[in-house]
Design a protein around this nucleic acid. Structure first.
Lengths: 152, 152
DNA sequence: GTTTTTGCAAACCATTTGCAGGGTC
DNA sequence: GACCCTGCAAATGGTTTGCAAAAAC
């Protein structure tokens, strides 16, 4: 795959779009990080991106990768998830209320809309008296492909 | 060695029970950590316990605190939760399938049984084809007390 | 008595920060 | 041209590890 670093106007990059829409500066390094993220399917860690950048010899420093991820997380373009392993990873996502299912084998993810967690939160309030303001739901399992692979 | 300090055989400690049941060695430091955990209401971090131990002048090292927490997490006596702040904290819990609501203000928690996340997982499978094996649900909000405090 | 656990300190590793130079708007 | 962003390297802070002494079974 080519990435030509950042000349591909042809390939639409939703993350770059998010940056533009938010009025953030579209710098070379940010575009590059955006490309790296889009090039990855599934979850990725900061270290993954640093490694990717290194392999492709983009001269991007660790700090910039971390700062870009932070920026994107703030904009809701990526979301931090805590893997069962304890690692911090990120997933790209459309900025809307939703959740992810994460494949424990390949890291691929699927987005799912608000599947009734709100209702669930309401019943928690009824049961405990706690007011629920926020929630994190992460589902882990196997994607269809990896289920097949497992059966072999 | 036995930590003096908290010799209360009278106070039943569910965490100590868990250790015994699991056939783990009941060492002084482990008991002490168990006591510290029980003494805390709500979430706590490894650093909290280290500080507590220090204040009470139990001669317990950082490493031991981390190792004990790890052990207890493996046994399901405590569970790791990732706070919205990004910190890693732990909550004590009864080893059964359940979730927690965490007060964002005081850290107090309430346990809740399986409130239909299973059903929810099933519908995710239907929608995405992912097999769901595991899930993390954390709810954050305000406990009854802190709601009152806020209104003031 | 054998095996496991502990405390200490050093090692690690991921993430953050200070700062001078360079890029973006 | 002003201000923001970047890279580098050093600092940070949480967590882990190696090892000899001590405790548990």
């Amino acid at each position: 795959m080519r990435s030509g670093i950042m000349t591909s106007m042809a390939v639409p990059n939703p993350i770059v779009d998010t940056l533009e829409r938010a009025g953030q500066r579209l710098t070379g390094p940010r575009r590059a990080v955006a490309e790296l993220i889009v090039a990855r399917e599934g979850t990725f860690t900061a270290a993954d991106l640093v490694a990717d950048a290194r392999v492709r010899r983009l001269g991007i420093g660790r700090a910039t990768v971390f700062r870009s991820i932070e920026l994107l997380a703030g904009l809701g373009a990526v979301e931090r998830v805590d893997l069962p392993s304890g690692d911090h990873a990120y997933v790209t996502c459309i900025p809307a209320h939703h959740h992810h299912v994460i494949c424990a084998r390949c890291g691929r993810t699927a987005e799912i809309g608000d599947i009734g967690v709100g209702t669930l939160a309401r019943s928690v309030t009824r049961l405990t008296g706690f007011r629920v303001d926020e929630h994190h739901l992460e589902l882990f399992g196997l994607c269809p492909e990896c289920q097949l692979a497992e059966d072999r």
